[in-house]
Design a binder for these strands. Structure first.
Lengths: 226, 226
DNA sequence: TTAGTTTGTAACAAAAATGTAACATTTAAA
DNA sequence: TTTAAATGTTACATTTTTGTTACAAACTAA
């Protein structure tokens, strides 16, 4: 997944949360805390999608939207509007401001992600790919397949999830705790050594002759792709 | 599915959305943002069907329609009219402008597709094929028949729906939950193991000697065609 | 260097997922 | 009604996956 997303939202905690998660998913993210700055930075950033809060300190979401539709350089920018409960949702949705989708706060990140994908898929199909790639490694989330050097590799379920996790931020080093949290089902307790064993299994699976090792061990810290 | 569809609609986001999805479904699509241009390009493009917005900046949908009916070269072109909510739907539909069908915005793409198929089926039966195909497997939705390697195969109702579901996105892996949601009638509760059994029955039915297995098991994830 | 820590590896047993057949119940057809 | 077809469920066999352990190897710091 790749693509640029801009956020205009006056609540810093929401920005932080969303931005962090989007980046984890491979998006490039920038943001503004108010409408006027947002409109300016928007044009510089040239995003593929805009997350827009309905209530802002200066301009309303609708006004920003209208501004965007008038501006030829960003006329077709897809917009997902964030509205707080109680903001008379029906009224808002009724207004034809050219918004592509709406999301009512509070929302889960998964919801948001689903909407983003849907919107991007129709506006800019190339932006959304459910393939994760790194060097000659390709992981297809839809078909649940993994290829190295174009040749398919068979992975067990945990190996698959493990690799998927690493591929989101390939070069980042993850501690065993982080890996556990993200790759294993919640609340399940396994020894930290278990990870080592699965790393070993994954290594065995994705290694092919004459090709360099893809998983790096960072002593006393964890593992990463490399 | 094949055939040419022309769109006259002044909202670029709708055009983009509809066009992309129609193309994904095998149609050839062209469009105009206003009525006058639309009428000209229409004649060049020679579509099998026209999607026509009711409210346009210059001509109204009705006027365009009248123009078309007067023009011998495109006299019988089927038209689906798109109307926004609040445009006094009843009044519009009452007018005998020779429109074949109406659709009120906002509409889902599935709705639109269903209407398009219906209209095309009666105007130009050869344009619409409701066959799903994958490798040597053919599923005919109209006649409810399935063929493998040109020879007909008998499937039970659930087997048929199951196969139909897989054939829409053949290589995609679906979880048991997803299969349940899409293949079984809503709100019906069946054990997840039930799916396995039906998969097994489907496999038995569609397998023929010396041919590779068509259903892939992805352990701990689900099933897909392959 | 040496001792202590960390990691790689293989083996094994336990647990989980899946394939298969059989059976009872429901539904549809004749 | 009678008969056949379709369906959901269960039980059991088989395969795959998983966690853990034990030991070897590699690394680090003094």
């Amino acid at each position: 997944m790749n693509g640029k997303i801009f956020i205009i939202e006056d609540e810093p905690s929401i920005i932080q949360l969303v931005q962090h998660n989007l980046e984890k998913n491979g998006f490039l993210v920038s943001s503004s805390l108010n409408g006027n700055d947002g409109l300016k930075e928007l044009k510089k950033f040239q995003p593929d999608l805009l997350l827009l809060d309905w209530m802002l300190p200066d301009l309303s979401g609708i006004e920003i939207c209208k501004n965007i539709r008038k501006d030829n350089s960003i006329k077709n920018l897809p917009v997902i509007m964030l509205t707080a409960k109680g903001e008379e949702e029906d009224k808002i949705k009724g207004l034809d401001s050219g918004v592509d989708d709406y999301l009512t706060k509070p929302f889960s990140f998964n919801e948001l992600m689903a909407r983003i994908k849907a919107v991007l898929r129709r506006s800019n199909p190339n932006t959304v790919s459910d393939n994760l790639e790194f060097e000659d490694l390709v992981l297809d989330r839809i078909e649940k397949r993994v290829y190295r050097d174009k040749k398919e590799i068979q992975l067990g379920p945990t190996e698959f999830r493990l690799l998927e996790f690493f591929l989101v931020n390939p070069k980042r080093v993850y501690s065993r705790d982080q890996i556990l949290e993200n790759v294993w089902p919640n609340n399940i307790n396994v020894e930290s050594r278990t990870i080592d064993v699965h790393i070993r299994r994954l290594r065995k699976s994705i290694n092919i002759q004459n090709k360099k090792e893809l998983i790096r061990t960072v002593r006393s810290s964890g593992y990463s792709l490399i």
